[in-house]
Design a protein around this nucleic acid. Structure first.
Lengths: 142, 142
DNA sequence: TCCATCAGGTATCTAATAGTGACCAGATGT
DNA sequence: ACATCTGGTCACTATTAGATACCTGATGGA
């Protein structure tokens, strides 16, 4: 990191790294996946799709999520500008979460994937069964 | 996608087990997410989109993936019927991977999400910066 | 008054998962 | 004879997810 030393792009002494491409770590798709490719983000977004909800409402609706993961994931969705958090000074205080316009856009973009899941997860499940049966046969031979 | 029975915070019938709903663990979307919501599955699928590739070709293309995760994720995609593995008896043996018709369908369904990422990840990045700045201000007050 | 309960979380600890580096087989080039 | 290519696996560590306990602060009941 030497300041003031202009390093021309043509410098060829130290190019052990493969040339970066669109699948390098700074590819937009990759950055998105790093954010939302966990099992909770999409579920939270879709739960908030029909309308705002409160913390414990989300927790009750998304079966199996822990408070920690809900809190953590909501914070990260809020940071990404996909979800808005509002503190309503009732007593006890209530906190509502809602998708932002940006989050709504993403939700729309995810819809095709969700539809595919509803149509095809049965096929995937069958493929798994078939694969496991083949595996078992092979292990019996060996 | 509006099955969100908005039971207002009724403090009455709160029995021990909440009634199961579409966000329960056997919801198709949830099952899909359990499979492909990791950072590598989608990258492998999109890399295979244009045409089949060999193991080390995939590894070189997807910057930062480890052999273990590539092997493991390919196996799981194959099990799901999304990717086909073919062993070609050259020497040394080469193994090619290609998307199946089912995988192609999923890839098409994911396209809207990928397009959104390319359009909007800049916005998301800005939102993050703004959020972090607000957080820092709050921490200075406290 | 004391206890329990609600909301919306954090703190801590452990279990599961991802990543790292070494190693393997079989054939080939040098 | 030895390093190198292919496509992996195995053992070990670092990171992450999940379970559990607890917190604040008001409210309502015995």
């Amino acid at each position: 990191m030497q300041e003031g030393t202009f390093t021309a792009p043509g410098y060829s002494g130290e190019t052990a790294r493969p040339a970066p491409n669109v699948y390098a770590a700074d590819c937009p798709t990759r950055l998105l996946l790093d954010r939302i490719a966990d099992k909770w983000s999409v579920l939270i977004l879709t739960t908030l799709g029909p309308g705002e909800r409160r913390f414990n409402g989300l927790k009750r609706h998304i079966d199996g999520i822990s408070q920690k993961m809900l809190s953590q994931t909501l914070r990260s969705l809020e940071r990404d500008g996909l979800v808005q958090r509002d503190v309503v000074p009732t007593v006890p205080v209530s906190v509502t979460y809602a998708v932002t316009p940006l989050g709504r856009e993403l939700l729309d973009a995810l819809q095709a994937m969700i539809d595919w899941a509803e149509r095809r997860m049965g096929t995937v499940a069958s493929a798994q069964v078939a694969y496991d049966r083949r595996e078992e046969e092979l292990s019996l031979i060996a």
